[in-house]
Design a protein around this nucleic acid. Structure first.
Lengths: 205, 205
DNA sequence: ACCTATATTAACCAGACAGTTAAACTAACT
DNA sequence: AGTTAGTTTAACTGTCTGGTTAATATAGGT
């Protein structure tokens, strides 16, 4: 029973790319099967439905990302460090896992209720919940007069968008300004830097 | 020939919502027809294909947004004003036209090449191109030592994401922090404020 | 060798899909 | 009343889709 394991996992890997490329509606089960080198029926044998396969992939992806964020929060002893660590972790993860980012993006646009329920589900079953950790840090930092934004909602909404859209929005900005960004590694480095600087100058007191 | 006009336009209005809700692949031509109170064949009669209908809607939407941005840039005599005006224009437009935002989001994720070609197409046929206006302002402001970010790419990528994701990411942040934002008008006001403050503190010298 | 549980396949299905067609309707103009 | 051009419709088509099924293959345990 070794080949089965590889088939089961290969379906996940291939399906992630398929969903990211075409969205749920546009994704084709048969294309996933073909690219995974597996009979179409195997997908239903292992994952019972297209919807279910989709949900499992989203959950897996989030479970992979969360510990990285958890650590970035934990190691940040000051808001300066926090504003440097978090964008770095987010951007580097999403650059390496663009398919994940695209799938999450799709979900947020199409059916926010679905992904948010997955998120809630994950966080209620985690011992040291990263959101709680974050809330505590923010409130302590604000009380100490270190940061200017006391509301965790707006603090988060001032960070995450900058990271995700940096990658997603790149082609758009290239089109708007009518330029071509050649060196992607340089661009990403510059992006992380620009975001960290903006956050430090903009939200530290 | 009066009813035809209203049918033709109603298809556009309904299709915008359909595409925003389900993405291109998930959108159903027949559902558009039914909701527009029109025979399905009418959609092909007026717009020849689903793809073409999609492109026309995207283009129309951008053509509606661009003048607003153009004006926000033009009236901003200082970077302070710019960092206040642009987020306000973006967020207020996207709050009122969430379907447009979702469609653009879909495109950016699924087929960036498509929407970017539409953008290029629009901007090359506009006399006072807003990107050029923006590039000039930024370079002048930087030379005068008023702003800290000389690169228009990163300046834009520090602004637009904050606006778009503020609306799109709201349910996600609610799920992460396990809260419910009740008053949406207050939230949007606070969001515009928080972004303007971040940009002013973070990017002015 | 036989049993059993898991893995895999080809062939199939009913419904849905984008797109077509040809005929009929409408209303303005002559 | 007849012509014309733009609208609208019902009925259709060929293809594709997610999902099913029943038969078969595999391999480990007895």
């Amino acid at each position: 029973m070794k080949k089965s394991q590889s088939s089961k996992e290969k379906i996940l890997r291939v399906a992630l790319k398929e969903f990211a490329a075409y969205g749920f509606g546009g994704a084709r089960v048969e294309r996933i099967a073909r690219q995974a080198g597996v009979n179409k029926a195997m997908i239903f044998y292992y994952y019972s439905s297209k919807q279910n396969l989709y949900r499992i992939i989203i959950k897996n992806s989030l479970l992979e990302l969360i510990p990285k964020i958890q650590e970035a929060i934990a190691v940040s002893k000051s808001p300066e460090q926090f504003f440097e660590n978090l964008p770095k972790v987010y951007i580097q993860y999403f650059v390496k896992n663009q398919a994940v980012m695209r799938m999450i993006g799709f979900e947020l646009i199409q059916d926010p209720g679905n992904i948010t329920s997955v998120v809630r589900d994950i966080f209620t079953n985690i011992p040291e919940s990263p959101p709680d950790l974050l809330k505590n840090k923010i409130s302590i930092w604000y009380q100490k007069g270190l940061i200017s934004e006391p509301d965790p909602v707006h603090l988060i909404l001032n960070i995450i968008p900058l990271c995700i859209f940096s990658i997603l929005g790149k082609p758009m900005v290239e089109a708007i300004l009518d330029i071509k960004i050649k060196n992607n590694i340089d661009f990403i480095d510059k992006r992380i830097n620009s975001i960290s600087n903006l956050l430090k100058k903009g939200m530290l007191k």
